[in-house]
Nucleic acid binder design. Sequence first.
DNA 1: TGCCAGGCCCTCTTTAGGGCCTT
Length: 212
Amino acid sequence: MTERQDKGGLERVAVIDFETTGLSPGIGCRATEIAVVLLENGRVAGRFQSLMNAGVRVPPDIERLTGISNAMLKAAPPADAVMREAAEFVGDTPLVAHNAAFDRKFWDYELGQFGRTRRQDFACTLLLARRLLPAAPNHKLGTLTRWAGLPATGQAHRALADAEMAANLMAHLTRVLRVQHGLDRVSHQLLCGLQKVAAKQVPEYLRRVTAV
DNA sequence: TGCCAGGCCCTCTTTAGGGCCTT
């Protein structure tokens, strides 16, 4: 464990969210907006947000979904410049995203456009919520936010609003681990281990962790 | 026109299929 860890809470993490032109860079989709929310001991310690111009057109259905238009991207800074700035903002801070498999693909792809590689793992609030909040009606980010009584953060499907929702959810999941499972510290390493454990094995995993 | 990805996870499973999630 090399990262800072705060007693009684969640160590510093960077919660990220991408808006994109589609579901995968493997089929030509690119990022259009990124937001990063630094969460430290359950509280927001910093924010980064920017549109980015990757030189691709936004399909009409995606423009309707996100509200991000081709005209907005035309005036946005180049994608590589934005990603360099985002990577600098994040540094070595462990990463978190909702459905991290999606954001990890775009993070890796956009960094790869200028020769950089990811240096840290992603924890996934979707996988963690499936294990820790099994009674939720579903595990969409918006549903979990409303179901858990977390604050509204603005327009859904914009990067900063979604990253703040995911950060609030991450803080809520930390509280669940502390209050319901007796953990006094929640590390990113623990979260990454927990999200790989089968749902039925979660109680045993947490008992083993708290016994150490 | 409609679909295009991919990992996770459950079940009527494991030599598979399909829903959930992200944009």
